[in-house]
Every structure is written in structure tokens, then in C-alpha cells.
Write a protein that binds this DNA or RNA. Sequence first.
DNA 1: GCGGTTTTGGGTAACGTTTCCCATCGGGTG
DNA 2: CACCCGATGGGAAACGTTACCCAAAACCGC
Lengths: 346, 346
Amino acid sequence: MEPPAPQRRVTIVDVARHAQVSTTAVSKVLRNAYGASPEMRAKVRRAIDELGYRPNAAARGLRGQTYTIGVMLPDIRNPFFPEILDGITDHLAETDYQVFLGPGGCNDEKAEARVTDAMIDRGMDGIILIAPVSSRARLERIASAVPAVVVGRHGHSTVYDTVTDDDVAGAAMLVGHLVDLGHRRIAHIEHHETDPTRIAEMPNAQRADGYRHAMRSLGLAEEIDIVSTTYTQEGGYEGAKQLLARPRRPTAVFAGADIVAMGVLEALTEAGLSVPGDISVAGYDNTTFASFGPISLTSVDQAGHEIGGNAARLLLERIADRRKAPVQVKLSPTLVPRRTTAPPPA
Amino acid sequence: MEPPAPQRRVTIVDVARHAQVSTTAVSKVLRNAYGASPEMRAKVRRAIDELGYRPNAAARGLRGQTYTIGVMLPDIRNPFFPEILDGITDHLAETDYQVFLGPGGCNDEKAEARVTDAMIDRGMDGIILIAPVSSRARLERIASAVPAVVVGRHGHSTVYDTVTDDDVAGAAMLVGHLVDLGHRRIAHIEHHETDPTRIAEMPNAQRADGYRHAMRSLGLAEEIDIVSTTYTQEGGYEGAKQLLARPRRPTAVFAGADIVAMGVLEALTEAGLSVPGDISVAGYDNTTFASFGPISLTSVDQAGHEIGGNAARLLLERIADRRKAPVQVKLSPTLVPRRTTAPPPA
DNA sequence: GCGGTTTTGGGTAACGTTTCCCATCGGGTG
DNA sequence: CACCCGATGGGAAACGTTACCCAAAACCGC
């Protein structure tokens, strides 16, 4: 039994000694900084490899850079986030940055604050906030402490960039699709929202808005029928129950999110109604399960990968220049028609 | 326009000055260390609140502790991980530790190494590896650099603790359930595995093993029928195609994972077979979508929340004493019968 | 060859904590 | 009353890296 190897980690000093140069020189090579000859670079790199040196992120952080980017996502369960994340990591793959996810509690401002504070404490170089529920003021506070990009919140800011999908257009496409199929009585299930800022900024509100506008512009103002519940399976179930109790039942239901559509489908099955024979159903987000054979849900696809890629790009730009003018990127969704929508019963 | 506020962050020195004490004293209060009178604590805490001080994690990291725990999860898409994560965060909620997720690329050893190295570089106090695909040697290397707990890998180690679910028992329960319903020709779709270590350690291999054992012990050795594909929707689709081409078709298919079952269902629908009328289907993991009305998939539930809680507990214990004897926790799964399984056709 | 510029390399002081030590002060003990 | 002890507080040296300097050498055009 040898002593259990205290194993001091290799530091920049070890590398410098091994390569017979100064620590300054090693640091320059590490950061591709100016002032190191090709021979020096080669020599240092060899030493780094031989010793298996890896820079200590804490020490770097103390000096200003951690090469770490934080992504706050409020609910890992939301099957739409992975796409965004892939977009982010793909964009960052070639850089020295490492991505870490901070799990915000589901739609919980407190938890969100805890995570973002933790990211700032850890000196992360930049953070991406995905569909945050925090107040506008809070977002600005965060963004003034660290370069930030906000995904999925409509509404401008002077300190952070935003990337959103055009929810109004998406909702309109869906309504258009249903109308093309011959539907007129099209109902919508929305996520209930009271806070005025959020009504203006949150995607759910925008979808409801898009629904209203589309109905009106297609001459169906009379038929607008919105049920307010939540973006959950239960919310969909409840909403569908309410809609089924209407004297004139809708022939199509546009659920504000795929998960809501799942609840709707359950309620319809329970009521003995067939989809799409008796009633059409559509969701939003084109989540993984929407494509599963037994479900085959008509939905709207947000360009998740592109959203993530853009967010990462904007963040890098902002890290490079913290005072550049904020940018708003708005991407366009696409309709994905599947088997839950069909012409209404004759 | 005022100058855009350079806004130096409040440091321990500021707090010390404001409270008229030494930085040492502040540090002691922060860490609840010995050597500070109640009055001093009160005074310091007041100063901390008044100034809105938050300790710099990088500086702390340089001295040894970062109060950060890393969770490596190979594939955020896997809907089973959120449960584990909840278990972890719930257990850690009362502590000072903050959890960050490192996104390993899907089943990619390289990506896994990158993430774990990044965690070690950042001086994380401990890490939890969820269903890692890395080699045994690599896991031991990681664990010797930082306290670690491995989730979902059977097989002991002298340096890290493990938490697993009893996959053999779970598979056996499922086979038992199908046999009870009257099935005999029960096929299994497994995730193809060649590496010998993994065959012994990975859950997929254990499930296949459990299937074999259960079939044999129920006198159905003759009926053992395994198709090797992958744990993906396509894998399920392919596997089902192969099984349907058999001269004697199975009356039930036990897919090694829920996502595989989705592919199976799709292939069956295509073939015009009804579920469970013509053929029963079961999955494993009890993922969120398994409970959706139109799917209603019979599955096996791993106690995800408990798995996470145990992992967190073991990690804290190991952080407290790095050389404590390794512990292996094995939890028991439960069967969740739903509508995709029924007696075989007469 | 000579001033001046550019290139190359290194010395050293931060960065914000923690931790090891030592100093002081009451008060209890012999 | 001398001595010791525990409790309380602080000084100062790390931790590993980067960035601001400055020095020396090499190169340049005339």
C-alpha cells in the first residue's frame, strides 16, 4: 500500500519550470496572446502535454474570465429545451467555452433568482436565460451584472439581447390551417396570465393574441372562444371539459402547448369522441412526443436549434463588447400538420 | 447620461470595513466557523445585508471549496433524468450547495470526458455521474480527482459510491406480468452492447439478463427471443419489423425502454395490428409520455426521485470524508400496468 | 553604424477568500 | 497573586492565474 497519493494538481508554475520559461510565457501561450514566438509556443505546448496540465478555472475566474457560460432553464421537463440547448452547444463547440445548465425550479421566481445569482457568483462569462419568469427589472439587474441573452421573452431591453420565435405568426398559421380544413368554431386554451408585463412579453400571451387576430382577420370574430387554464396536462384536461360543456361545441381545439393537447386528447377519449373524426386538436412546440405514432399531433415547430444558435452567437458578441447595441432576433415557426387535424364532421 | 456604472462588486473587505472588524472575522461568520461571538456575528450579518454582499465563488474555489456540485447527464432528452435531478436538488435544497448540470453529448465518451474535466477544472466539490458511458478506468480517474457518485452503473468500485435500480428485478416483474396475462411468446428488444465491461455494468444489459432469467425460471426458455437494436425510437421500429417477420409472431413485446416502445407501436400501427388486441407492448422507465392518454404504455417505474436523493446523500457523505468506504445502493422498481398490455388473442 | 521601432521574454502585483498562526483579555485555579 | 486556559479577534501568507509593466535583443531604414 503506497500512501494514497496526495496528488497536487499540475499548475502553471510546474509547466513553466518544466519548459524552462516564465509563467507569463505559459499564460500567453494558453490564451494565444501576443508576445510569444513560435518556438516558445511549441516548447510550452509540449510541456503542457507532457504534464497533462489543465488551467485552474477558479484562479482564472479570480482574474476575470472563467470560460463558462450558464444556461438557465426553468423546467428541464419541457421537451422543447433540448433543441435550444443543442443549438447553443453546437455553436459553442469550437470555442473554449463550457456550458453549464442551472436548473430553475418550474416557473418559480425565487428559484430562478437563486440560480442566476449563483451563476453570477461563479463569475460566469455570460448567461442565457430561457423563457424566464422573472420580472423585467430583475432581468435588467442580471444583465447589468453579466452579459446576458434572453430567449422567449418578447419586449426590448437596453442591456440584453433577445431571441424569440414569432408566436403570433405561429398561432395564425395554425388557425389558418384549421380554417383551410373547413373549421369555423375553433377554440383556444391559453395559459392564464395576470401580470401586465408578462401579458406583453410571454409567449403564451402572444399565442392567444395571434389566435384572436387570426380569427378576426378571417372573419371569425364571432367564434373566438378562449379558455384560460395552465400550460399543463391537467390544464388541457380541464380546458377540454369546459369546451365540451358548451352549447355549441367547437369543432377544433388549438391548445397553446403540446402538453396541453395531451390533456385535451385524454378528455376527448373519456367523452367518447374520436380525433380527428369528431373534433380536431392541435398543439404548439412540436415536442418529441408529438411525432409518436399513437399521438401524431398537429403542431407548430419553433426553430429550436436556430434559436439556441442565435442566442449563443449574440452572447459571444456581447461578451466581446459589453456595450454594443442590443439586438432582437425573431425567428419564424413552421406548421407541422399531422393526424389530429382533419376537416370537421359534415 | 451618467457614466455606465463600473459597479465594483462588494467584497469581504468592504463588509469588514463597514462592520469595523477584520476580514478574518467576516470569513468566520460566513462559514459559521469557530471563534466569533454572537455580537460579532450579528454585526457582520447586518453589514452583509446592508451591502448586499455575496461571496465570490472563484476566490473561494482557489482556497478549496466552491459550494458547487456537478451533475453529468449524458442526454437531456431522456425524460427519466428530471426525476433523478429533482431528487438531487430536493436533497440539496437546504444546504449551501448549488447544482449545475453538465450536458454530455448523447452516449459520447469524448463529450463526457470534456464535461467531467470541465467540472474538475472548476473545482466542483463533488460530482454525480448519471448513467455514464465512460470506461471503468475513466470513472475511477474522475473519482480520484473529486468525490463522485455514479448512478445507473452496476458494478462496484473502491473510490466511488453507486446508486442503481434493480433492472433484473424490473425486467422479471414485467415478464411476470405478461405471463400472468397468459402470454408465452414474449420477445425483448435490447440495446446492442459489445464492450465486455458495459455488458456487466449497463442497465440495458441487465434488463436483457433479467428477461432471460425470468423466462427460464417460468419454464419459457424455448420462447426466449431477443432482438438487438438500440434504445431509440428507430431501434424500436426496426426491432418490431424483425419480430413481425418471424414465422411465429410473439404475442407480447417487452421493449427495453419506453422510447423503444414508441417505435414498436409505430411499426405495429403500420402493420395494421391493434394494441393490445393483437399484440401487447411494454416499455421501461415510466417516462412522462407513457402516461399520456393515447399512449397509456405499460412500463416499469424506477424510483427516480429516490435515486437522486440517495446519490446526493452519498455525495455529501463522501465530501465530508473522502476516504469512507464506498456504498452501493440498489433500489427496487415498480410495475405500472396500463392499456398496452392485455391477455393474448385467443 | 546609429537612433528608433518591433519583437520577445519575464518580474511582479493584483484578484477575494480562507487558514494558520499569534496576541489579547477575562477569569478561574492552585 | 502568579499561572494557565478558553474565548475572541486579527495579521498575513497562501491559492493559481493574468496583466501591466519594463528590459533586452533584434531588426530597420538611412
